[in-house]
Amino acid sequence: MVKRGVSIGFLGRFGRSQDMRYLDASLRSAGLHPSLVPEGVKMAAVSLMAEDGPEPPTGAYPPVGALMALAALGEEEFARNNGEPARRAVLGRLERALEVGKGLDASIVLLMLHAGLLHPTLRDDYGIEADQEPG
């Protein structure tokens, strides 16, 4: 469910909500152009961020943008854009999310997987797949 107040704008008459602008800026800062991520995926990410309480603070967006960028770009491209220390830090978050299997980071990874945005090398190297219901 998309949290109330998340807006992508409409025909230039209504602006994007502040939280969508924060996420776009965070994606861009991490080296992933926001237009490469469908609006529905970004709206879902913002909703996941707000799932456990009030509006996320502005400082909550860069880590989510970085994880989404790593997931979409893969390790090499992410490291070229952000440096090796950032790659190690965000990759550590991805690994912890896969170990624990719940929480915001795990939800973001799952979102990127289901959206078809998870880089193939990450999917293969870490064996990331979604359980499929038979039928």
Rank of each mutant, 00 (worst) to 15 (best):
L110S: 14
G127R: 10
L118G: 07
I8A: 11
P63I: 05
M43G: 11
D124P: 01
G15C: 03
L73N: 03
P54E: 12
A86L: 06
E99K: 14
R88K: 14
M20I: 15
A44P: 01
P34S: 06
E129H: 14
K3F: 05
E76S: 15
V64D: 01
M43K: 14
E84K: 10
Y61T: 03
L98E: 09
R96Q: 12
D52A: 15
G15H: 07
L48W: 01
D131K: 13
G31S: 11
K42N: 01
G92R: 09
K102A: 11
E95Y: 00
R28C: 01
L122M: 05
P134R: 11
L94P: 00
L104P: 12
V41Q: 03
T121P: 00
S17Q: 04
H33R: 14
E76K: 14
F78Y: 15
N82T: 06
Q18K: 13
G74M: 06
V46M: 04
P62G: 03
F10E: 13
R87V: 03
S29D: 15
A69Y: 02
A44N: 03
M68H: 10
Y22W: 15
P38Y: 04
Y126P: 08
E55H: 12
L104M: 09
L32P: 00
F78K: 14
A115P: 04
L110E: 15
L118C: 02
E133A: 12
S47G: 14
A72D: 00
A66L: 03
S26P: 08
S26V: 08
L23C: 00
S47L: 09
M20H: 11
L36T: 12
K3N: 09
V41Y: 00
R87F: 07
I128M: 00
G5P: 00
D124N: 13
R21W: 02
K42Y: 01
N81A: 15
V64T: 06
L110M: 11
L104Q: 11
S17Y: 08
L111D: 01
F78V: 10
M43P: 02
G116Y: 12
